[in-house]
Design a protein around this nucleic acid. Structure first.
Lengths: 133, 133
DNA sequence: GTTCGCATACTCGGATAGTGGTTGTCCGAGTTGTGTTGG
DNA sequence: CCAACACAACTCGGACAACCACTATCCGAGTATGCGAAC
């Protein structure tokens, strides 16, 4: 059980955009260089973020990715769900028992974590992180 | 990102043992039948629980698995760590930056979940669950 | 009656394989800005 | 001077491959119990 690297990348990218250039378009090449990963793979991740409505892309020369106007409301959980999907950590109970106590305990614990992640906004972190990325 | 089925199995097995036979030895065959999964695979899971010190095994005829004397203190988190390992959900930061803010946020959120799971004991659930498994 | 040996019932652990998700690469297609060329 | 064109930079998306963890199975080895035969 682990979060995927893609999620890690996505969070770093979002924070990076928020800190350095909230209104400028940035190309994949440049982002890939700064995060030290392949441009083509990064574009997959960015596509997911675009579909989730967090950033917008423009094609052609001088194209690239840019945060959407309402980016300040984006939380960690939003980014994570955009990449990982919003399925529950603990799949449905094996017996198909909807009253499964184990299921309930796990769901409650997961909710605690999500609550924390929902509360943490990228923009809050960006204020702290003018230097450290 | 998902918890493995093995964890789900392990929790069910532990709860089952706690509810039905806290002091009796139970064979793999029997457990596998009740949880509806293959005995050989189940034995792998049980081995992990033995190594984690939660249950004990006896070989030979009339052998099987049994909860250890101090089973009442076992929490959900203990079982999960026994199966999944105790590594953090969010691997280390990509830049190897120990002060990575993202890392810290994720670790905090994870801690919230673990706190809940640590608090939940199998024995507590067993008291509720005399009928429902 | 005691002891030896054997069958039985069980766990243990390694080897192996299928499956699915993650990670990553490659390439063709579409899009936009820019510069150039011909009228 | 301006329009048309060519080119370069860029994103988009599908196809594809490598890799790894999870899931699961099979089998041989070790171990304890219980029963029966032999002394």
């Amino acid at each position: 059980m682990k979060y995927s690297k893609a999620t890690n990348y996505a969070l770093h990218i979002m924070l990076h955009l928020a800190v350095t250039s909230p209104n400028q378009r940035v190309g994949v090449q440049q982002l890939a260089e700064q995060q030290d990963l392949s441009p083509t793979y990064l574009s997959k991740i960015l596509t997911k973020l675009v579909k989730a409505g967090m950033i917008e892309s423009s094609s052609g020369a001088n194209g690239g990715y840019r945060l959407k106007p309402d980016w300040e409301n984006i939380s960690f959980l939003d980014v994570i769900h955009a990449i990982e999907g919003s399925a529950s950590l603990f799949g449905s109970c094996l017996n198909n028992n909807p009253d499964c106590l184990i299921q309930k305990v796990m769901a409650l614990a997961e909710e605690k974590m999500e609550e924390e992640l929902r509360h943490q906004k990228i923009s809050d972190l960006a204020k702290e992180a003018t230097v450290v990325l």
